[in-house]
Design a protein around this nucleic acid. Structure first.
Lengths: 216, 216
DNA sequence: AGTGCTCCCGACCGATCGGTCGGTCGCGGA
DNA sequence: TCCGCGACCGACCGATCGGTCGGGAGCACT
């Protein structure tokens, strides 16, 4: 490796270029639909060079998803750890999650695809397991947060695990929904003002649901 | 066609058997990962026979998704049309949607995959367009319902289009989430008692959000 | 008996798949 | 100077891909 450039980024290792390109392609079209020839061409390498960095296609895929899952965990566990009452922490976690998904358009897709396709792929490479652990840990932490809020009387009595699924569905799904989401919305979901709106709606949903106060 | 069996079902045309098998396979592993040889074997036909019923693989896929989308629309537009105030109608729509997804485990996956993969496939077969129309119409109807409820002061002022995405995320995503959902939940999401719980949580979310009444 | 039609099949096509192999090139260390 | 080594490549492999083709079995109608 040449001395890490002081100019930062700009200079990427081939391995990282492969991971980045693969992330984009897998996100858009899925594991099975991407051929290694196509990927190699996007990266600007010969196809056989890919095998110098990753033993198999499945291995490469696992590396792509694990990298994302670990990054997500790394950033979001921090926002969970910061202070505040459970509602504050939960809302900060959701805000950060939405920001993360909005800033990295590939993440939501890769996340959902990794849920869909895990039945599929040849089992259990080490990075796959690491990725699962990262997400599992984070979900458990949010679950604890919900329980804490309920214990303090701050939250109503929710079914914690179902509520976790709800939270994921409310945040991850829209950013993975592609053309459908854009069509429903009439705008690009990744536009900063739409991201802001999305966060506001999620927060409002937590705080008061849909039904107007006056009507009950 | 031999006289339609009075014994009902049991006797299926080859075309329907192909559609059913393809639905299951596409739902589980996606378009690109399913080979026509495998599909033909599941159906119990020779591979070339598939081409007697569908001109191409893409055409077959479009037929599979369109059938589901139209079925969903057919059932859910009815539940929207039935009477009641906007909240009652919205909750009935959500209940029926959840029931539909729970009774047909392939639907949620096919739905989400059709959102993901539409960038992908060779453009615009007629059944594809018909499927899109069905879903688009339904989403528009629900949007109208939200607006009606807001106009009547029943609902708080939501951003209608964002809220539509929320509703889809809350209902469709969990049933598509496969092993992840089961792991978070600790149980099979398609189990009747979990389905009931899911509906209850969705309704509670609409009615009061997460935050306890007393705390504001 | 013959004709036409639906349904189905095995054999085959060119293309592409993931992966292997032998080898070239440039660079850092001895 | 030479060596070892990481990075890279083109050519090639068997397998599988979606799709075509010609034909056969069964049935209805004349």
């Amino acid at each position: 490796m040449p001395a890490p450039s002081s100019v930062a980024a700009a200079e990427q290792t081939s391995r990282d270029k492969i991971l980045d390109a693969a992330e984009g392609l897998f996100a858009k079209r899925g594991y099975a639909a991407i051929g290694l020839r196509e990927l190699a061409e996007v990266v600007g390498l010969g196809k056989s060079s890919l095998f110098h960095h990753f033993r198999t296609k499945a291995q490469l895929y696992a590396a792509v998803t694990a990298r994302i899952l670990v990054r997500i965990e790394a950033r979001l566990v921090r926002s969970l750890a910061a202070g505040g009452d459970p509602l504050v922490r939960l809302e900060r976690w959701l805000d950060d999650l939405v920001d993360l998904l909005a800033e990295n358009p590939t993440y939501a897709r890769v996340l959902l695809r990794s849920l869909f396709e895990d039945d599929d792929l040849p089992g259990d490479l080490p990075e796959e397991i690491e990725g699962r652990r990262a997400i599992g840990d984070m979900m458990a932490a949010v679950g604890g947060l919900l329980r804490e809020g309920m214990g303090a009387g701050l939250f109503r009595a929710v079914h914690v695990n179902h509520f976790l699924l709800t939270l994921v569905g409310v945040t991850v799904f829209p950013f993975a929904s592609g053309e459908f989401g854009a069509e429903v919305l009439g705008k690009d979901l990744f536009d900063p003002t739409e991201v802001r709106r999305r966060k506001r709606e999620v927060r409002a949903l937590l705080r008061s649901g849909l039904v107007a106060r006056a009507s009950r």
